[in-house]
Protein backbone atom coordinates (compact mmCIF):
# COMPACT_ATOMS: atom_id res chain seq x y z
CA UNK A 1 0.00 0.00 0.00
CA UNK A 2 2.95 2.33 0.33
CA UNK A 3 4.64 3.37 -2.83
CA UNK A 4 7.40 1.02 -3.71
CA UNK A 5 10.52 2.12 -5.39
CA UNK A 6 10.78 -0.92 -7.61
CA UNK A 7 7.39 -0.28 -9.18
CA UNK A 8 7.87 1.45 -12.48
CA UNK A 9 4.64 3.39 -12.42
CA UNK A 10 2.01 4.12 -9.79
CA UNK A 11 -1.56 5.31 -10.15
CA UNK A 12 -2.26 8.17 -7.82
CA UNK A 13 -5.07 10.62 -7.22
CA UNK A 14 -3.90 14.21 -7.15
CA UNK A 15 -5.61 16.80 -5.02
CA UNK A 16 -5.01 20.29 -3.79
CA UNK A 17 -4.73 21.21 -0.14
CA UNK A 18 -3.79 24.61 1.19
CA UNK A 19 -2.31 25.64 -2.16
CA UNK A 20 -0.11 22.55 -2.60
CA UNK A 21 -0.59 19.58 -4.91
CA UNK A 22 -0.62 16.28 -3.06
CA UNK A 23 -1.37 12.74 -4.13
CA UNK A 24 -2.38 9.44 -2.57
CA UNK A 25 -2.23 6.00 -4.20
CA UNK A 26 -5.42 5.50 -6.22
CA UNK A 27 -5.80 2.00 -4.76
CA UNK A 28 -6.58 3.55 -1.36
CA UNK A 29 -9.35 5.81 -2.58
CA UNK A 30 -12.85 4.60 -1.94
CA UNK A 31 -14.85 7.62 -2.95
CA UNK A 32 -14.91 11.39 -2.97
CA UNK A 33 -17.70 13.11 -1.05
CA UNK A 34 -19.16 16.57 -1.25
CA UNK A 35 -18.98 18.32 2.10
CA UNK A 36 -21.38 16.60 4.51
CA UNK A 37 -22.54 17.35 8.01
CA UNK A 38 -19.64 16.78 10.30
CA UNK A 39 -19.87 16.00 13.99
CA UNK A 40 -17.31 17.51 16.31
CA UNK A 41 -15.64 15.15 18.78
CA UNK A 42 -15.15 17.26 21.89
CA UNK A 43 -11.77 16.67 23.42
CA UNK A 44 -10.24 15.00 20.38
CA UNK A 45 -6.92 16.29 18.97
CA UNK A 46 -7.18 18.67 16.02
CA UNK A 47 -5.82 16.10 13.60
CA UNK A 48 -8.97 13.98 13.93
CA UNK A 49 -11.44 16.39 15.45
CA UNK A 50 -14.62 15.17 13.77
CA UNK A 51 -16.70 12.29 12.45
CA UNK A 52 -18.74 11.87 9.29
CA UNK A 53 -21.35 9.41 8.09
CA UNK A 54 -20.23 7.49 5.03
CA UNK A 55 -23.08 5.26 3.86
CA UNK A 56 -24.09 4.21 7.32
CA UNK A 57 -20.65 3.88 8.84
CA UNK A 58 -19.10 6.38 11.19
CA UNK A 59 -15.77 7.48 9.75
CA UNK A 60 -13.17 9.70 11.44
CA UNK A 61 -12.25 12.78 9.42
CA UNK A 62 -8.57 13.65 9.46
CA UNK A 63 -6.97 16.95 8.57
CA UNK A 64 -3.59 16.36 6.93
CA UNK A 65 -2.75 20.04 7.31
CA UNK A 66 -2.07 19.42 10.99
CA UNK A 67 0.81 16.90 10.69
CA UNK A 68 2.10 18.52 7.49
CA UNK A 69 2.18 21.92 9.21
CA UNK A 70 0.24 23.67 6.49
CA UNK A 71 -1.70 26.88 7.07
CA UNK A 72 -5.23 26.10 8.13
CA UNK A 73 -7.61 28.49 6.46
CA UNK A 74 -11.35 28.05 6.62
CA UNK A 75 -12.47 24.98 4.67
CA UNK A 76 -14.17 26.38 1.54
CA UNK A 77 -17.51 25.44 0.05
CA UNK A 78 -15.83 23.66 -2.86
CA UNK A 79 -13.95 21.36 -0.53
CA UNK A 80 -14.17 17.60 -0.83
CA UNK A 81 -13.67 14.68 1.49
CA UNK A 82 -11.62 11.76 0.20
CA UNK A 83 -12.61 8.47 1.81
CA UNK A 84 -9.61 6.14 2.05
CA UNK A 85 -9.10 2.50 3.00
CA UNK A 86 -6.29 2.78 5.45
CA UNK A 87 -5.30 -0.02 7.83
CA UNK A 88 -4.87 1.17 11.43
CA UNK A 89 -3.02 -0.98 13.94
CA UNK A 90 -3.10 -3.83 11.45
CA UNK A 91 -6.89 -3.70 11.08
CA UNK A 92 -8.85 -2.58 8.05
CA UNK A 93 -10.18 0.90 8.62
CA UNK A 94 -11.76 3.74 6.71
CA UNK A 95 -10.61 7.32 7.17
CA UNK A 96 -11.73 10.53 5.51
CA UNK A 97 -9.30 13.35 4.67
CA UNK A 98 -9.97 16.94 3.63
CA UNK A 99 -9.05 18.25 0.17
CA UNK A 100 -9.68 21.72 -1.20
CA UNK A 101 -10.28 20.12 -4.59
CA UNK A 102 -9.65 16.73 -6.16
CA UNK A 103 -8.02 16.65 -9.59
CA UNK A 104 -7.57 13.35 -11.35
CA UNK A 105 -6.19 9.87 -11.33
CA UNK A 106 -2.82 9.91 -13.00
CA UNK A 107 0.13 7.67 -13.54
CA UNK A 108 3.37 8.75 -11.94
CA UNK A 109 6.60 7.47 -13.40
CA UNK A 110 8.81 6.00 -10.73
CA UNK A 111 11.82 7.61 -12.41
CA UNK A 112 10.48 11.04 -11.60
CA UNK A 113 9.84 10.25 -7.94
CA UNK A 114 12.44 11.01 -5.38
CA UNK A 115 12.74 11.18 -1.68
CA UNK A 116 12.16 14.58 -0.24
CA UNK A 117 15.25 16.78 -0.10
CA UNK A 118 16.23 17.22 3.51
CA UNK A 119 17.16 20.84 3.01
CA UNK A 120 14.87 23.55 1.73
CA UNK A 121 11.63 21.77 2.46
CA UNK A 122 9.06 22.98 4.89
CA UNK A 123 7.46 19.53 5.20
CA UNK A 124 8.29 17.30 8.13
CA UNK A 125 10.47 14.88 6.11
CA UNK A 126 9.33 11.70 7.82
CA UNK A 127 5.74 12.35 6.80
CA UNK A 128 6.53 12.61 3.09
CA UNK A 129 7.02 9.40 1.13
CA UNK A 130 8.08 10.87 -2.21
CA UNK A 131 7.98 13.94 -4.32
CA UNK A 132 7.02 13.44 -7.95
CA UNK A 133 6.27 15.58 -10.97
CA UNK A 134 2.90 16.05 -12.53
CA UNK A 135 1.96 18.47 -15.33
CA UNK A 136 5.19 20.31 -14.79
CA UNK A 137 4.56 20.85 -11.09
CA UNK A 138 5.77 19.12 -7.97
CA UNK A 139 3.41 16.70 -6.35
CA UNK A 140 3.94 15.54 -2.80
CA UNK A 141 2.94 12.07 -1.73
CA UNK A 142 2.43 12.06 2.04
CA UNK A 143 3.39 8.92 3.94
CA UNK A 144 -0.06 8.19 5.35
CA UNK A 145 0.85 4.99 7.24
CA UNK A 146 3.61 6.82 9.11
CA UNK A 147 1.44 9.84 9.83
CA UNK A 148 -1.32 7.73 11.34
CA UNK A 149 1.03 5.34 13.16
CA UNK A 150 2.81 8.32 14.73
CA UNK A 151 -0.46 9.81 15.82
CA UNK A 152 -1.64 6.53 17.36
CA UNK A 153 1.64 6.11 19.19
CA UNK A 154 1.34 9.62 20.59
CA UNK A 155 -2.17 8.77 21.79
CA UNK A 156 -0.97 5.73 23.64
CA UNK A 157 1.75 7.62 25.43
CA UNK A 158 -0.78 10.12 26.71
CA UNK A 159 -1.75 9.41 30.29
CA UNK A 160 -4.85 7.30 30.16
CA UNK A 161 -6.27 8.60 33.40
CA UNK A 162 -8.13 11.85 33.70
CA UNK A 163 -9.89 11.72 30.33
CA UNK A 164 -8.44 13.90 27.64
CA UNK A 165 -8.01 17.23 25.96
CA UNK A 166 -10.57 19.82 26.81
CA UNK A 167 -12.04 17.64 29.48
CA UNK A 168 -8.97 17.14 31.60
CA UNK A 169 -9.55 20.42 33.33
CA UNK A 170 -11.71 20.18 36.36
CA UNK A 171 -15.14 21.17 35.29
CA UNK A 172 -16.27 21.47 38.86
CA UNK A 173 -18.29 24.53 39.45
CA UNK A 174 -16.67 27.02 41.73
CA UNK A 175 -18.15 26.33 45.09
Amino acid sequence: MTLRKDATTTDVVTFRLSGEVLAVPASLLREVLEPVDIARVPGAPEFVSSLINVRGTVVPLADLRVPLRMPRDEIGAGARIMVLDLPLEGQDAVVGIYADSVHEVTRLDAATMEAIPTVGSRWPPRFVAYVGRWSGAFVTIPDLPTIFADYLASQQSRPSSGASGAITQSEAEPV
Binding site: A39, V41, P42, G43, A44, P45, V48, L51, V58, V59, P60, A62, L88, E89, Q91, A93, V95, F148, Y151, L152, Q155, Q156, R158, S160, A163, S164, G165, I167
Partner: peptide, 14 residues
Protein backbone atom coordinates in the same frame (compact mmCIF):
# COMPACT_ATOMS: atom_id res chain seq x y z
CA UNK B 1 -15.11 4.72 17.75
CA UNK B 2 -12.06 4.28 15.58
CA UNK B 3 -8.70 3.71 17.28
CA UNK B 4 -7.93 7.29 16.30
CA UNK B 5 -10.30 8.36 19.06
CA UNK B 6 -9.18 5.85 21.67
CA UNK B 7 -7.83 8.72 23.75
CA UNK B 8 -11.24 10.35 24.07
CA UNK B 9 -12.81 8.83 27.15
CA UNK B 10 -16.01 10.82 27.49
CA UNK B 11 -17.81 8.77 24.83
CA UNK B 12 -18.54 5.09 24.57
CA UNK B 13 -19.33 5.16 20.85
CA UNK B 14 -21.14 6.99 18.11
Amino acid sequence: LSPLHAGVKAFSGA
